[in-house]
Amino acid sequence: MKHASVLIIDDNQLDRYILSRLLKKTGHEGRVFEANDGQDALDFLKDYQARKEEYSDDFPPAVIFLDINMPKIDGFEFLEKFSALKKDNPEYESIVFMMFTSSDLVEEKEKAFSYHFVKDFLLKGDLDIELLKQKLDDFLCN
């Protein structure tokens, strides 16, 4: 897991910075991909072969951190479109999602967990090195 690559999908550049810095602090050494919003991420993921050639073992990312409130395609729309994309690309089966959002609404949490590949729901305000490390470790053990 230490070397696994991750993708952060968030329209807020500072939040991406915060998360990637935290990841570094946990000892994560893998590549960190960043996407501005859902559309950006879909563009990134849609051509598996091209990306595989470009990034070899770093692609596909093992974990995707996904924000909910974004312009254009938001988090939920992305989950829906990703589900469709996954059907044509079995290589994406292994990707797990961690929601990374400032929303603590129960409905949104439930909606996110209705996708089996969403494994966690992280609140931006609560996230620190310890918590992130623990989450990633949990995921590693699983």
Binding site: L14, D15, I18, R21, N69, S102, S103, L105, K124, G125
Partner: peptide, 21 residues
């Protein structure tokens, strides 16, 4: 109200994270 609280909270949380840094 939901969007307002969310959008007000969002930059605050970023500030919180940056302050820790």
């Amino acid at each position: 109200a939901y969007r307002t609280s969310h959008d007000l909270k969002s930059p605050l949380l970023t500030i919180k994270g940056l302050s820790r840094f």
